[in-house]
Design a protein around this nucleic acid. Structure first.
Length: 344
DNA sequence: AAACCGGGGCC
DNA sequence: GGCCCAGGTTT
């Protein structure tokens, strides 16, 4: 091999690049394991720029483990509102309780202990153990998979566990035993800002001459990912029920999207035709509002409704109370449309 | 192993 | 419209 990359050379190139190019982020240099843990939960499947304001706000509302462990579920979800993957917030609250019970109110220091906690998998356990407690374990996230698959020319499907384990071995080989947290953050920063999914900045990359993908013009086809998602279409009609200046809202309890979030009375239809037939029963409506999720396209309508149906009285909320309820982004958008129409 | 869980940014 | 994001849990 013409350009052989020793571990020493690899670490020198990586850390020199990192110290010159890293972004200043709120959790950089953070020592508090709680804050480091929260940052990692928020950043799961979430872009750093999108997560930052949520990180700051979450810590303002829940500054330590006990405040989160003793929190009201609605309040936690409210802070998470708009970020998506709402289970993360519920799991974090559960994990805080587990820390109170099992670890005397502290974030456990070991990878294997962290792994036992709700919402903490291989990635987050390694991130917290290495960044907060300097345990020498390498993280494997989307950035790490992309960086190594290109650098080393790994053509296996990166969504397969076998491929993830393969790349884990490589990144663990290169891991800086003395500053594993810095090493992990440096690789992720490479993937996020230099070795990007599309149009990577190879001209600025310190590994260019060692990189398989660059040297074989394969940056656009690596990493390989064969899995494709299929999108479901769903049709929602929300019934806006008002009574004495209060509004009927209910909590989503089923195993479905937005569990724990609040919404008006909902009926779901299998086809657009069925939904439109239902709409003919009402004088007017708003929608369809098309809402795109990763695996679902939702077409939502809202109608005014005065029904005699026996509805639980405690599910009627004043406008002031509504502001405290966590709601899906779609519901908030639809309510805005509905209110705009009424005021015209 | 595959399905499910959100919303936003980029191309 | 498709892809990806400092992934994890459930089936």
């Amino acid at each position: 091999m013409k350009h052989y990359l020793t571990k020493k050379k690899f670490l020198h190139l990586l850390m020199e690049w990192y110290h010159a190019n890293k972004r200043e982020l709120p959790w950089r240099g953070e020592k508090d394991p709680y804050k480091i843990w929260i940052s990692e939960i928020i950043l799961q499947q979430t872009r750093v720029e999108q997560g930052i304001p949520y990180y700051l706000n979450f810590l303002k509302k829940f500054p330590d483990i006990s405040s989160l462990a003793n929190s009201d579920i609605d309040n936690v979800l409210k802070v998470w509102e708009g970020l998506g993957y709402y289970r993360r917030a519920l799991y974090a609250r559960e994990a805080a309780k587990q820390m109170m019970e099992w670890h005397s109110g502290k974030v456990p220091a070991k990878f294997v202990e962290l792994l036992e906690l709700k919402g903490i998998g291989e990635y987050t356990a390694a991130a917290v153990a290495s960044i907060a407690f300097h345990e020498p374990v390498a993280v494997v996230d989307g950035n790490v998979l992309r960086f190594f698959s290109r650098l080393l020319g790994i053509k296996d499907d990166i969504s397969l566990p076998a491929t993830i384990n393969k790349i884990r071995k490589y990144t663990n080989y290169f891991l800086d035993q003395h500053s594993p947290g810095e090493y992990n953050q440096a690789i992720m920063e490479m993937g996020a800002t230099c070795c990007t999914p599309k149009n990577p900045n190879c001209n600025l990359c310190p590994f260019q001459k060692y990189c398989y993908a660059f040297n074989h013009q394969k940056t656009s086809i690596l990493p390989q990912k064969t899995k494709k998602i299929n999108v479901n279409k769903r049709y929602f009609i929300y019934y806006i029920i008002e009574k004495n200046n209060t509004y009927y809202f209910q909590r989503r309890e089923k195993e479905d999207i937005w569990k724990g979030m609040y919404e008006p009375l909902l009926k779901e239809f299998k086809t657009l035709k069925d939904a439109k037939r239902e709409l003919t029963r009402f004088e007017n409506h708003v929608g369809p509002l098309r809402h795109v999720l990763s695996h679902q396209h939702i077409y939502a309508f809202a109608v005014n409704c005065n029904i005699d149906k026996k509805l639980n009285q405690k599910n009627f909320y004043s406008r002031k109370q509504l502001k405290k309820l966590p709601m899906p982004v779609l519901v908030k958008k639809l309510l805005n449309l509905h209110n705009d129409k009424k005021s015209n």
